[in-house]
Design a protein around this nucleic acid. Sequence first.
DNA 1: GCGACAG
DNA 2: ATCTTGTCGC
Length: 241
Amino acid sequence: MELQHSHDWNLSREEAIALQQSLRDKIITTDQLGEVRTVAGVDVGFEDGGDTTRAAIVVLSFPDLQIQERAIAHRPTTFPYIPGLLSFREVPAVLDALDQLQHLPDLLLCDGQGTAHPRRLGIACHVGLLTNLPAIGVAKSLLVGQHETVSDEKGAWQPLKHQGEVIGVALRTRSKTKPLYISPGHRISLETSIAYVLQCTPKYRLPETTRQAHKLASETPASELENLNVEKREESQLRLF
DNA sequence: GCGACAG
DNA sequence: ATCTTGTCGC
């Protein structure tokens, strides 16, 4: 996969912040996506007490949300968790997982913030910019900003503001549950982001994309994990004919 | 200085 | 994120 704006990942906290500052103005928050036929969810977790980072991706058809393809990647953890610098810890593994896909998705739903970030460069922006794929930030909790109380009906939302700027929304994806924090990652507007998230969330609080990715990462026996790659090799063999 | 702080 | 069973509420 061709990466845009490639850069080193072995950075100090100061260098990482400086890089975010230099990348923030490259983010596109207007709709620059074609017809969406597939949507992918990403889940990142840790093993070995945190020494190993695991990224799982599940590609679903859209709008019917049926599983099309899955991938998992593992790599040693090299960056600590620092609020505001999450992407430097998780993105390398995510890129590895994306590389394993036979077909790249038309849209990415990332765990974490997009522009709803102190420097407007949350993980969804970072992944979207590097891969040049449309991406949306879907976070389960707040990083920065404030908002009015969101009414309890599914689909209700309130603008999320920070330093006098609307950086995302608090969106009720299911009544009686805490709202999700949605913000553009790259190549998509806030309004369109809300529409896609709701269409990917037919029943539960979290989008099907995220739920499927989490299920793959946490409930898949190591023995079955191998089959994923075997299936891909066999499929690529078939594609030669 | 104090408190907040995605996953 | 991760360590972990039952349990309160819709």
